[in-house]
C-alpha cells in the first residue's frame, strides 16, 4: 500500500500558498477540518478562494480565516450564521458567489467523476442563471454548471488508514466525500488513523486513491451551533 501519512496539519498544508483555491468539507460546523483551518490561520496564507457550503461562525470554522482577512473569495450556498462575513460582504471587502447547495455538491461530484459540467434546473429564471448556458431537455430548462477546479480539498473523516481510505460518521459526512474526490490534492484529517487492513473494504466511503495526505487530528472541539434537546419525561 502507498503510505499517505504525514506528521500533522502543518506538513499537510505546507504547499497551500497565497491565492490558492481550496475546498473545505463540512455543513455548518459539523464535519469541518478543524486542524487544517487552525494551521492555515497560523501560516497566515492570504488571498484564498474557499469553496465550502457555509462560512463558519464568527469565531470558529472558516470564520477564523475571515477574521484574519485571509479569504479573498467565498463560494458557498448559505452564510447566515456569520456576522463578520455579512459585514465584509455588504461592505464589498469580500467577494462572494452564492450558489445552490445541490449545485455546489454536484459540481464537486462532477470533478471527482471526471465530468466537465452538469445540467441542473436549480436557479433557472433567477439571478443565479445570469450569463449561463441554458439547455432544454424534455421540455424543461437546465443550467450548465462547470465542475469545480480546486487546488486543494481539505476534508474531515472519522476513521482513515494510511492508504487514504476514509470512513465518515453520521451527518458529518455531508460534503466531505464529494470534496475529497474533487481536489487536485486532497488532505484528510481523521479522528483515528489506523494501519491498512484494519478497515473493512466494504465499509470505505472514500477510496484512498482520492486522498493524497492523511493525518490524525487532535483536540477536536466539534462545536454545536444549535443545541436542541427534548425533556426526559
Amino acid at each position: 500500500m502507498i503510505n499517505k501519512k504525514v506528521s500533522g496539519a502543518e506538513e499537510a498544508i505546507r504547499d497551500i500558498t497565497d491565492g490558492k483555491t481550496i475546498m473545505l468539507g463540512g455543513f455548518g460546523l459539523c464535519g469541518i477540518p478543524e486542524n487544517c483551518i487552525a494551521a492555515l490561520v497560523k501560516k497566515g496564507v492570504k488571498e484564498l478562494t474557499c469553496i465550502s457550503n457555509n462560512a463558519g461562525v464568527d469565531n470558529f470554522g472558516i470564520g477564523l480565516l475571515l477574521k484574519t482577512r485571509q479569504v479573498k473569495k467565498m463560494i458557498s450556498s448559505y452564510v447566515g450564521e456569520n456576522a463578520e462575513f455579512e459585514r465584509q460582504l455588504l461592505s464589498g471587502e469580500l467577494e462572494v458567489e452564492l450558489i445552490p447547495q445541490g449545485t455546489l455538491a454536484t459540481r464537486c461530484m462532477a470533478a471527482g467523476y471526471g465530468m466537465p459540467a452538469i445540467f441542473t434546473p436549480a436557479g433557472v429564471g433567477t439571478e443565479v442563471a445570469e450569463g449561463k448556458e441554458i439547455r432544454n431537455f424534455n421540455g424543461k430548462d437546465y443550467l450548465m454548471e462547470y465542475a469545480f477546479e480546486a487546488d486543494f480539498a481539505l476534508v474531515k473523516a472519522w476513521k482513515g488508514d494510511t492508504a487514504g481510505n476514509l470512513i465518515f460518521r453520521s451527518t458529518s459526512r455531508n460534503f466531505n466525500p464529494v470534496m475529497a474526490m474533487a481536489g487536485k490534492i486532497t488532505i484528510a484529517e481523521v479522528e483515528e488513523l489506523v494501519e491498512p487492513g484494519e478497515l473493512d473494504p466494504d465499509h470505505i466511503h472514500t477510496p484512498g486513491v482520492y486522498v493524497h495526505r492523511i493525518f490524525q487530528g487532535s483536540a477536536y472541539e466539534k462545536r454545536i451551533e444549535q443545541r436542541t434537546v427534548r425533556p426526559r419525561s
Binding site: 459539523c30 451527518t171 466539534k222 462545536r223 454545536i224 451551533e225 444549535q226 436542541t228 434537546v229 427534548r230
Partner: peptide, 21 residues
C-alpha cells in the same frame, strides 16, 4: 428523529437547520 435527550447530543448528528437531532 426527534431532538436528543439532554446530555445525549451528538455534534456529528445534526439536521439542515444545524440542530442536534
Amino acid at each position: 428523529g426527534p431532538f436528543p435527550f439532554e446530555g445525549e447530543e451528538d455534534p456529528d448528528m445534526i439536521n439542515a437547520g444545524k440542530q442536534t437531532i
